[in-house]
Design a binder for these strands. Sequence first.
DNA 1: TTCATATAGATGCAATTGCATCAACTGTCA
DNA 2: TGACAGTTGATGCAATTGCATCTATATGAA
Lengths: 146, 146
Amino acid sequence: MSDKLSDAVTKAWVRLVRARHTVVSAVEAECKAAGALPMEWYDVLWDLERHEEGVRPFELEQRLLFAQYNLSRLIDRLVEAGLVKRMACPTDKRGQMLFITEPGKKQRKASWPHYARAVNRHLGDKLTEAETEKLAALLGKLIEPS
Amino acid sequence: MSDKLSDAVTKAWVRLVRARHTVVSAVEAECKAAGALPMEWYDVLWDLERHEEGVRPFELEQRLLFAQYNLSRLIDRLVEAGLVKRMACPTDKRGQMLFITEPGKKQRKASWPHYARAVNRHLGDKLTEAETEKLAALLGKLIEPS
DNA sequence: TTCATATAGATGCAATTGCATCAACTGTCA
DNA sequence: TGACAGTTGATGCAATTGCATCTATATGAA
């Protein structure tokens, strides 16, 4: 029983993977061509920008669903690119606090319109407002903890 | 205008990425722990199994949305593992025909129940039948060519 | 305190991916 | 025909990812 998949579940599974792939690769290709930052970089910068008080890497890891070792190296790259600053964490000597730099803010902001346009084109324009809300609601159920 | 994202579109975009990540990583982790084949291997084998007459790599590329260079090397690995056979293509000397081997069929089949259970658990069980169908229909609209 | 266990983050190494480009055909059109 | 653009698949090299493990510090129980 539990190792039968209904047609509906199979279809939803396949389409979840396909739709995400189709939409994300179209958006990323367009944004890359336009010179925008990669999506992951954008996400980190955006999170840091909304938390001016500083962010711990493990928070980012949880909020953005990164693997720890990938995030660690992504931060390296962001720091090297001058978009993020690492500071020692005052309350935990193991840890660090991350901050977005001015160039980071500038580049994040410059990338935004490209993402907005691309997401509208490849997602927003394909659904009505009501459908979009319905989709978000259904996807929400897949994310909620069990 | 087109570089504004409505709240609904933003939410759907974020959740599309999150939901796929959450569901796929849960499914893959479970299947891997159970000793099942990786999802990509499974997909290729399943496609080959349904096309006993042989499959050209470029067909796989289109049907399964692989990048050409990734597929080329994935096939290398499958051949090396003895799950797939490469044969010269009789009608196009540039090309090849791919076939699943008996061990390939066996392993594909052995992996199936693990995928079925995991997909049921992480997707099917989170939605009603009607919701699942609605989700598939909405995702379908994101895949359809423009 | 003091030891055991858990958490934060980094890193060496192997595997995979992305990019650019190549060689070997095919198919088309003059 | 025969040049030429297009297709099929492979590959060198750099970048990224995954895995396992490590160091340093924190935390909690005895």
